[in-house]
Design a protein around this nucleic acid. Sequence first.
RNA 1: GGACUCAUAGCUCAGCUGGUUAGAGCGCUGCCCUCACAUGGCAGAGGUCGUAGGUUCAAGUCCUACUGAGUCCACCA
Length: 891
Amino acid sequence: MPKLPPRFNFTEVEAKWCKYWEDNHTFHATPKPDKKPYTIVIPPPNVTGILHMGHGLNNTLQDIMARYKRMNGFETCWMVGTDHAGIATQNVVEKQLAKEGKTRYDIGRDEMLNRLWAWKEDYGGTIINQLKKLGSSCDWDRLRFTMDDGYSQAVKHVFVELYKKNLIYRGKYIINWCPRCQTALSDEEAEHKDTQGNLYHIKYPFKDIPNHFVTVATTRPETMLGDTAVAVNPADKRYQDLIGKILVLPIIGREIKIIADELVDPAFGSGAVKVTPAHDPNDFTMGTRHNLEFINIMHPDAKLNKEAGKFEGLDRFDGRKAVIDTLKNLELIEKIEPHIHAVGHCYRCNTVVEPYLSKQWFVNMKPLAKPALKAVVDGTIKFYPDRWTKVYINWMEGIRDWCISRQIWWGHRIPVWYCGTCEDHPIVSETIPTECPHCHSKDLKQDEDVLDTWFSSWLWPFATFGWPGNTFNEIASSQKAVSRNDDLKYFYPTNSLFTASEIIFFWVSRMVMAGYEFMGEAPFKDVYIHGTVRDAKGRKMSKSLGNALDPLEIIAEYGADALRFSLIMNSGQDLFISKEKFEGGRNFANKIWNASRLILINTKPENRKISAPPQTNDLASQWIISKFYTTLTEVNTAIEGYRFSEAENLIYDFFWKNYCDWFLEISKNKFSDDKVQQTAFFILKESLRMIHPFMPFVTEELWENLTENDIPLSLDSWPKTKSEFLNVAAIDQMDTLINLVSVIRNIRSQWHIKPQEEIECYFAAVDSYSKTLLKDNSETLTSFLKLKNFQLHDKLPTHKDAASGVVSSTGGQPIKFTIPLGELVDLAKEKAKMQHEIMLKEKSAAGISQRLKNESFVSKAPADVIEKEQARLIVLIQETKELQEVLKNLQ
RNA sequence: GGACUCAUAGCUCAGCUGGUUAGAGCGCUGCCCUCACAUGGCAGAGGUCGUAGGUUCAAGUCCUACUGAGUCCACCA
């Protein structure tokens, strides 16, 4: 018999099973015709990532589902890998370079890429190892990276396909520009934050009317240097006569026209707006419409260029001050008002982004959005919780084109070449072209830019399984069956996706679009959106705030099982986490451990070879078996409905309260009984299965010590629900016993009763109990017990638990005790139920009769309604009488 | 400006389709080192379910308004 120490040594155990699972490829999945697949793809963490609580939660959720499905006989593949995270990774390496006093331009593109790959080799696996420590049951043999050769091929292929379908185009538009990262960003990558700024009202003088001005309002006065018009609403009476008049742009002296455009809101500011077509999306639209000049006043680093005249070389914010000062001196500032407005910030470096005119590649999203929208509207794809459905739909309906080119080096280089002689025809190709197809020139240059990281992530559910691979030449257009390799055939579409709400637009929605476009079907069926992990004060956890709890520290101090357990316990919505919360998980793991020790010490090996619940007359045994199966059913429902915290609560309650506190305590004095041993062991074993997805390490270790099974618990089966073991009578009787014992304990505790005084205590308790239960029938229970010749123990055994004392008083035959109680309580329950019913009926009747007396009701209500109410009243009164009659006869 | 979420014990939250006495964990109080576990056991105190209306025989649960907290979206310069 193995001996277990009194403490669960998680450090050792976790290391042992991490290694075991990995060495044995426990979680490697391959297509198996006789099994159903279950697939989850991990939201690939950034290579730059280090495990934070959000990862902890996200991956625990996935792992619970994966282990649950695996144990339920599904060939479960949890696809794993990392994302190259273009801007983030490049930023990290650029910081390293900066320490050497260099920039990426100093070392050149090739050397920079070498450094990036070297960094990836050195540190890119960090988060993967951390995921392993969490106990994640990923298919580690399939580990992918978004810049793998095969994956890169998929990205190129997608670009070329979309280009062929006219869904990718290149053009000069206003995009979000990060002056620090010096790259374009998509709309989603610009985070709008309310910022305190000013609204500057500037007077623009007329060319021909001295001392007359038009006032315009702006939050970014420096952009006035690039103004090429002033616009008013065509319906605005104040300005109708002025349309077409010429103004002189202050400082610069450019002559600009007053134009009329619907875009202008007459109610805002003065109703006249300066138009800077190269620095504002609205103005860009107007500029195009009115054929205005597009004057770019900034360098890519947001320093003002020569168009800014004397301000050339100033940073945009210094430029702003300088422009205002100059205008003040010219007495052209009418007023400056404080103004809160949403300003875009780079999601990678938090720099204020600049709306900037530049030539970029875009994806035409509307055609892609169509099937993706339909799938969610018609329920093919479901969100859990449901409210995210609306968020997704809103975004899809208002979808805008996606800027996918980035002016950085780390990523998939855009597969487009430009010919030195005939520039107008970009060569879009999956392979490196040798000559220009138009003029046969060999002077070809590849586009300098790389693709948005998300342009590779959106292919994750199928590119990871080898797409396009051998399906390369057989891609069908959307909505048609697609030829697939074995893995794709088997594992795609995937089943569930687990992610955070911030990622819905970046990733979830785009994966759906890509799924339909390239695979002809949705990439997953369910999307589970979990909450954000916050600190105890409700702030997002972040390094800069210094409030981040490091999951690895928690694992070291409390164990991975504890981390997982406590995260899930709090995962109903957003989580507020502090260190103490993990004690609960640690304590539960320890409880499981010690319950197992008790069983191991007290059961004979032959009683541990049991695969079905034993047939037994023992009430507590019948009860715990019953309880286990009802709990199991509820747990199944909760997990299938993605209600993990509920599932965990059910399990916790069952194991701790029912199994340990009641069943084991009662059974302690009866452990010589083989049947009791068998029950205790069987329920423990089944509980370990049920706990395993939540706490894989402690359960795996105990499984090894308790069973002679060769396969790890990870690959064993989930308990089967068995309705035949649902024993309602046992549950009822045990409830009664629990109630009785609680009352006894209550009195014992309040009166500070000593063991020698037990007899009186017991009778007092019984009386008290009967009062509680039978109200005005306080004699019933006592006399009933006497009638049945029931003898109470004269002394409480010197045992800590009153429950064992009471039960053992019948000499190991609790059934003697509980049958009379059960009968009695059935009666009492029946009565209580009836009394309640009578009360409800009386109340209803009172309500209705009051209504019928209400004059306005009688006069206004239609006749048939009144009749109905009267009929109901009569029925209610009749029923009440009948019930009261029955109740009388019972007593 | 639109949309959404939340408001229940000192704290963090359950309470799914309205129906017996509103639950748990932590914290708090009292009693227990008892041979699985003090990371434990037993008992207890603590709630007019944000405010005001409404629907209903019946509302923490449904509706409306308000207040407070938070999140997302949006081209009002």
